[in-house]
Design a binder for these strands. Structure first.
Lengths: 349, 349
DNA sequence: GTGAAAGCGCTAACAG
DNA sequence: CTGTTAGCGCTTTCAC
């Protein structure tokens, strides 16, 4: 059967298309009897509003673009899931773009999404610096919220976990369980997660014991680097290895086991993010859980409350960007347990 | 600045909107000089075609809906990534829907995507049986390709890995490396991956040694089940544990280590899918790698070649559905290595 | 090769 | 409360 349109419904219900539109969109009050007839006709004909036409006319597609570096990064799927749920619950659809960790691809994807007239953009930038230009340009056109990673000061609203608070939780826990000679395996570069976590580690360790020499090595957020880094720090025999994320920690755990180290007896290992892998490692990894559902909800809230960019640039001071930081939670598992302490069992996958 | 439209470009180039449209879309030949002027004007004004208007007029949104059970299932992200790349390369955008493993949510998402007038649907069904109705209804409206899992016979075109071939590779490898007493930890239910893999195991083992008693236990595709199943099969002291997917295998590996079993010396363990976790397990997991990029390419090909459903149902025999099965590849790692054999190093995550 | 005109299906003024 | 009338920005006949 051909497509059922508003006209068909109007004809069947014996009224004008405007009335049908009003009933179905609930835009303005309509007589109870007419409304019933319209709904009945729409039902009977199996009418389904054409969102494309609606979008063209109302200048709003009900669509948000979700741009991320690489969906295969194990931290992202759960975030994508929560975002999808929150947005669909508001009747908005998600256009997904995977940038293959490449800023140029990212710029192209952003352009494609803007061409499709997304109402807003949710974006995890590929690179703190090299993403900035494209992000700033996009932010001038539609409401845009940065997620998980920053993109330079003042570029756009952003929502992320409080990395400093998370690192503080880790250090506190290690101190409380008697660890005295921690070291850090971090990531180099300016990405906010990398920079904030290593700064927080440095600050926290100094507060713990100002005389302790700082043992920190920097590489990247990968399992390989975790493995390699252990060879650099293990000779100093730390009693705790604080890792900047779970991938690094997984690699560190593997290598420590190969070297015959006793985890957690001899040395504790901690991660960050609580990706699915963390609960599956052996021993299960103590880590910092990001409040994923809250991050998603907060991002969605910022999107909807930020009014569309003015068509004509307003003179005067620019609206200040909003930065939301959410508190994470420490998840203590076997990799940092002092003897006999009960810990959370392995995660379920 | 207000939105730049075709009219603006036409005015700037000194021609009609029709001409501009033709130049930009390349629909019909246009004078070289005019074309140049148009392109120059479009560039200068920063014109970006409004895909919404284009979609309304041309009755094609250039958009594909991707519906999946749960993006957090570790097998899906790499598939989503490949699909996204293949589709974006053709200038199509991906509307993502996550069904939370629930058939009703799935039906609702499908409806929402159809309302948005997606040109086609790529769908990994939540359930072989309970998804069927919604999927069949959707397939009547737009081209639809089933991915990874089936949904009953004759419902729609489908693309998936050849599970039987994969299982045969595993059994062959185990036989070749001297394993004689395998057992199987599978998944119950009618989902195609579960059913095909356990059938292939049964057939392969019987062919290997018709007198061997079949040792198989069935549960679900989860780490927990892998752990629990080991307690059921270990007393019989198999020399190989064939698992229906990598999650099960990861659980089995954990439990075997707790029990003090020597993997791979005493018993080999194999998985299926080659999710990122597989290379990270200890010992790294021998598994069957799905040809993810090829699956994605094949799915995209089926989508574009299936002409849109006829507006008026044609009488006569229905077009037969196409079923594509792609051959997987065996990835031998430490969990099944006979002594001294070189195996692929850990995956890089 | 180019332009004028007619809509795609819907919403939003504006009258009644 | 309801109908009539304009379009949203684009593609696509149909003339020239």
């Amino acid at each position: 059967m051909a497509e059922v349109t508003l006209r068909d419904v109007a004809r069947a219900a014996g009224c004008s298309v405007a009335t049908v539109s009003r009933v179905l969109a609930g835009t303005r009050p309509v007589g109870a009897e007419t409304a019933r007839a319209v709904r009945e006709a729409a039902d009977r004909l199996g009418y389904r509003p054409n969102e494309v036409a609606r979008a063209l006319r109302s200048r709003s597609t009900g669509t948000v673009g979700l741009v991320l570096p690489q969906i295969t990064n194990p931290f992202f799927p759960s975030l994508v899931r929560e975002l999808e749920h929150v947005l669909h619950a508001e009747g908005r659809a998600v256009l997904l773009a995977d940038c293959d960790d490449d800023p140029e691809t990212e710029a192209a994807r952003i352009g494609a999404l803007l061409g499709r007239r997304v109402d807003a953009l949710l974006l995890i930038p590929v690179d703190e610096r090299r993403s900035r230009e494209a992000v700033a340009a996009a932010a001038a056109q539609v409401p845009l919220v940065l997620l998980d990673r920053g993109c330079g000061p003042g570029v756009a609203d952003s929502v992320a976990v409080d990395n400093a608070a998370g690192m503080a939780l880790v250090l506190e826990h290690l101190a409380a369980t008697g660890r005295r000679r921690p070291c850090f395996i971090g990531a180099a570069g300016t990405a906010s997660a990398a920079a904030e976590r290593r700064a927080a580690y440095a600050a926290g360790v100094a507060a713990l014991d100002p005389t302790a020499p700082e043992r920190a090595v920097l590489g990247e957020f990968s399992v390989e680097w975790g493995r390699a880094a252990v060879d650099r720090i293990w000779p100093a025999r730390p009693d705790a290895v604080v890792c900047a994320n779970d991938l690094i920690a997984a690699g560190a755990l593997q290598r420590l086991r190969q070297l015959g180290a006793d985890v957690p007896g001899e040395v504790a290992v901690t991660g960050f993010d609580d990706v699915p892998l963390a609960g599956l490692a052996d021993p299960a990894l103590t880590t910092v859980r990001q409040p994923v559902a809250e991050l998603a909800a907060e991002a969605a809230r910022l999107l909807t409350r930020r009014p569309a960019a003015a068509l004509v640039p307003v003179p005067g001071p620019r609206r200040p960007v909003r930065t939301v930081r959410l508190a994470p939670e420490l998840v203590v598992r076997a990799s940092s347990a002092p003897g006999g302490v009960r810990v959370e069992p392995c995660a379920t996958s």
